[in-house]
Amino acid sequence: MRGQLAIQHVHIHWDKATRGMPGSGIRNALPREVPFDPPRASDRGWLQRIEYRARDGFAPVTSYGELGEIEDWRVPLATRMEGDDHLWLRFNVANRAPHRPHLDGWIVRLPFGQRVTLRCNSKSDGDHDRWYFEDVVHVGWADTATLDLPVFREIDERALLY
C-alpha cells in the first residue's frame, strides 16, 4: 500500500447512572476530534485512541500505536487496496445493540489524499448495569499520517439508545 494511514478513534463510555444530567452535559461537550500528532515517523501510519470514561470523570486517556506494530484487533478498521489510488474500508467498531448491518461490509472507497469519518453508538447489558458507547473514527490516507485532509465522506450510524 502506498502512503500512510492516520486513524483517530475517539471512544466514549458511560453507564445508566451518568446518562442524564450532569453526565450528559459533560459528555456532549467532549471533543470528537483532537489534534493528531504522532510521536515519530512511521512506514504505515498511526492509530491514536482517545478514551473518555464516566467512571474516570470523562478524563481523556490518549495512546498511540504504530500500524504494523500493534495487534490487529486494536485497529478499528480493515483495508483493501483497489488499484493505486483507492482504499476500501470496513469498520470494526464493536457495535453491540442495535445492530447496524451497514457496517458489516466494505462501505467506503476512500481516494488517496482524503479522509472519512464514522460516527456510531451502541449499548450493552452487563451483569449489573447497562453500558453505552459512542465511537468516532477518523481515517486519513496520504503520503504522511495526517488528518489535515479534505473530507471525502461522513458516515453517521448513530441510533436512538434510550
Results as ranks from 00 to 15, higher is better:
Trp14His: 06
Arg96Gly: 05
Arg32His: 14
Trp46Pro: 03
Gly20Trp: 12
Cys120Gln: 13
Ala41Asn: 09
Ala17Ile: 02
Gly65Gln: 08
Gln114Asp: 01
Pro60Asn: 14
Asp43Ala: 15
Thr62Cys: 13
Val10Ser: 04
Glu33Ile: 15
Pro31His: 09
Gly57Ala: 11
Pro39Ile: 12
Phe36Asn: 10
Gly83Phe: 04
Pro101Trp: 08
His13Pro: 04
Met81Lys: 01
Arg19Thr: 06
Arg27Leu: 15
Trp46Lys: 03
Asn92Leu: 12
Asn95Leu: 13
Pro60Ala: 15
Phe58Asn: 02
Asn121His: 04
Glu71Thr: 13
Ser42Pro: 02
Arg80Trp: 06
Gly45Ala: 11
Arg100Phe: 02
Ile107Asn: 05
Gly45Lys: 06
Asp43Ser: 15
Asn121Phe: 09
Leu47Tyr: 02
Ile50Leu: 15
Leu110Ala: 01
Arg119Tyr: 11
Trp73Pro: 00
Asp72Asn: 12
Pro76Phe: 11
Phe36Arg: 13
Val116His: 08
Gly65Trp: 07
His9Leu: 15
Ile50Thr: 15
Trp106Val: 01
Arg55Thr: 05
His86Gln: 08
His11Ala: 14
Ser124Lys: 04
Trp14Met: 08
Phe91Arg: 01
Val108Arg: 01
Gly25Leu: 15
Leu110Trp: 00
Trp14Glu: 07
Ala59Gly: 10
Asn28Pro: 01
Phe112Tyr: 13
Arg27Pro: 00
Arg32Gly: 11
His99Tyr: 11
Pro38Gly: 11
Trp14Pro: 02
Trp106Asp: 01
Leu67Gln: 03
Ala94Cys: 09
Pro60Ile: 13
Ile12Arg: 09
His13Cys: 10
Gly68Glu: 08
Gly113Arg: 00
Pro111Trp: 02
Pro39Val: 05
Ala78Gly: 05
Arg53Trp: 07
Leu103Lys: 10
Leu87Trp: 02
Trp88Ile: 00
Arg90Val: 08
Ser124Thr: 10
Phe112Lys: 03
Leu118Cys: 09
Ala54Asn: 01
Arg90Gln: 08
Ser124Leu: 14
Cys120Leu: 14
Gln8Cys: 12
Ile50Cys: 14
Pro101Tyr: 08
Asp104Gln: 15
Gln8Trp: 06
Pro31Trp: 07
Gln114Asn: 00
Arg27Ile: 07
Ala41Ile: 03
Ile50Met: 14
Tyr64Glu: 12
Thr18Ile: 05
Gly65Val: 11
Gln48Lys: 15
Arg100Gln: 12
Leu118His: 02
Arg109Asp: 04
Phe91Glu: 07
Glu66Val: 08
Glu82Met: 05
His13Asn: 12
Pro38Trp: 06
Asp104Ser: 15
Gly20Ile: 01
Pro76Val: 05
Asp15Tyr: 00
Tyr64Lys: 03
Ala41Trp: 01
Trp46Glu: 09
Arg32Ile: 11
Met81Phe: 02
Asn121Cys: 10
